[in-house]
Design a protein around this nucleic acid. Structure first.
Lengths: 174, 174
DNA sequence: GGTCTGGCTATACAAGGAGCAAGCCAAAGC
DNA sequence: GCTTTGGCTTGCTCCTTGTATAGCCAGACC
């Protein structure tokens, strides 16, 4: 069992005394906090670029696909790029930006968790190093390469942090 | 910029020819695909265990908290544990199971992505090795410790995979 | 000019998440 | 036995996500 959580360092230890006002997780969930957004990004990582590919492979309606593609493009995770098939007009396809492909670890982490806890049998797909075939995993590591258990992790305030717009408030990070 | 996606190996290369029927990501999103579910789990990782702590710190209503705590408990990410404060009746608190704490990398990965792409200034919080203070990161790594770019990643069918209930269909993994 | 096609939009609707506010309930303590 | 307290439920409402179905629109080709 888990049980023991992370170590909240310093002033963070008193959970009643601070708020998670600027939490990056909250901001992230505002952008990719829906099922269809993450599935669109999975598809984009798989190499899907065209409207009908997204809608068809994910199994969502045109409307849902169009809406999410627009949202993700506006947010900067996808970029439109014109293309042209012979005998067709020029259209836009959707390719990952750096911001979008930086989400790949999130997708693999969720996939890995689902593989372990939600599949009846073995995992259907593997992520590997394409060159060597070595299996890939998402891991929490320090620069020196150590992986940690949850209870060995510490959370601390970033001393360089300051409130985004004026009035640097001292007491509400995250 | 990103641009190049992962390498779909073998039969997976033809995206039109297979479906993502058993994708672990889809299953994972059915359990933790909502904002409030992930925020509850963030709080559980931070050490919050009690009803009012979840509702109050996340800033959601009692109703939403109760609903998610029930869902996550039924799904096996949280477990109820009785406790008793002096002068109070016994009640249940919610602690992470192994299944729940295995989601921590997902939370950190999302947080890290938000830190990089959605914060106006520096990140408000840091995750570190509590012992040494060394910063923690989520990384895609092979067993030999190499980290990869997106275009070096390969996706392949698991040869050991079989459809969960009878009729092992040959053509629809993930 | 007419038609076809793929990408996208429009309308109408159902389901679920979540807010507000109030109420319920099982001890503990008076 | 009445009140208090914290945890949880209920009724009602709004908003978002997603479905189903249909329609629009800009070219390319005829």
């Amino acid at each position: 069992m888990g049980g023991m959580p992370v170590v909240m360092e310093g002033a963070l230890a008193d959970l009643g005394a601070w708020k998670t006002d600027h939490c990056s997780l909250v901001k992230a969930l505002e952008v990719v906090g829906t099922r269809s957004a993450l599935l669109i990004l999975r598809e984009a990582c798989y190499g899907t670029t065209r409207f009908s590919g997204f809608a068809g492979r994910i199994g969502i309606t045109d409307r849902a696909a169009a809406q999410q593609l627009r949202r993700l493009t506006e947010a900067g995770l996808l970029a439109k790029r014109p293309y042209r098939e012979d005998g067709g007009r020029t259209r836009d396809e959707y390719v990952l930006t750096e911001m979008g492909s930086d989400l790949f670890p999130v997708i693999v982490a969720l996939m890995q968790w689902g593989d372990k806890h939600l599949q009846d049998g073995p995992a259907p797909l593997h992520y590997v190093d394409h060159e060597t075939g070595a299996p890939l995993h998402v891991e929490l590591r320090t620069e020196t390469g150590d992986t940690l258990e949850l209870e060995q992790v510490g959370v601390r305030k970033n001393p360089a942090w300051h409130a985004p717009n004026r009035t640097p408030q001292p007491n509400s990070p995250s």
